[in-house]
Design a protein around this nucleic acid. Sequence first.
DNA 1: AACACGACCTGGTAGC
DNA 2: TGCTACCAGGTCGTGT
Length: 272
Amino acid sequence: MPELPEVEAVCRNLRAAGVEGLSIVRFRIERPGIARPQEVGDVEAAVSGCRLLRVERRGKNILLHLSNGQSLHVHLRMTGNLYPVPDPRFRPMATRAWWEFDGGRGMLFEDSRALGRIHLYPTAELTARMDEQIGVEPLDGAFTTQFFVQQAKRSGRPAKLFLMDQHPVAGLGNIYAAEALFRARIHPEVPMKRVSKPRLLALHGAIVQVMREAVDSAALAYAEPGRFVEGESFPCAVYDREQEPCTICERPIRRITQGGRSTYYCPACQRR
DNA sequence: AACACGACCTGGTAGC
DNA sequence: TGCTACCAGGTCGTGT
């Protein structure tokens, strides 16, 4: 589920539901591991009674800014989801944390694998940390071709791993990194600094394009609060399509392993 | 600095 | 049907 576009959809969905400005009557973490090493009781106590001022996204991170000068840092990791619910008593099986708002509505953090995390920090500390750890947003004006080429030229890492690193550019994960490389016709194993300037420009454009399209798809999929809508997902050209014919040349898509994850690409269209 | 790899977790499914 | 093995959209810590 959650790369930048899906996390953006989660945030829009929360804002559209009007959670910003609501008072949190109660906050509970049902599974201590998601807050580790922070103490669940401390976090719950600090959050309960605050107002949720603003929902912000940085890369794949969600920041819930509170009225007490602190913010919750939510990371969905692989299977997490954060969504508003009309009835705060609604608790699906994989509920890991929940918020009850003044007036009777609620918000849920659901995560079947429980790899997601929720931590509490002073707002200034959290935003500073994000500035330092999270790179440029691909849909932001700061993501210029000059910036991208400069970052690329000083990295010897394989292209796919470079894109998945959150430091230079934030928000790409396994799916959209593969899709962007396919559109730019770049082999995922090529050292970034060896990619030609024209190809880098193509990749820059592909990243922006893929992210825009995926954000739109994700927004549609989340149109109904808290529920995915089938058939509205981003149409992948290579991801999870091993052996299927390439949409351009019809040769079979190949799967390899990079950094312990699957990479899908077309060996004919994406040359070294 | 860069890389591989295990850890963190649960659930779905391909294959026997 | 039932079991096993492997796979999964992410990140961090450790060791080489």
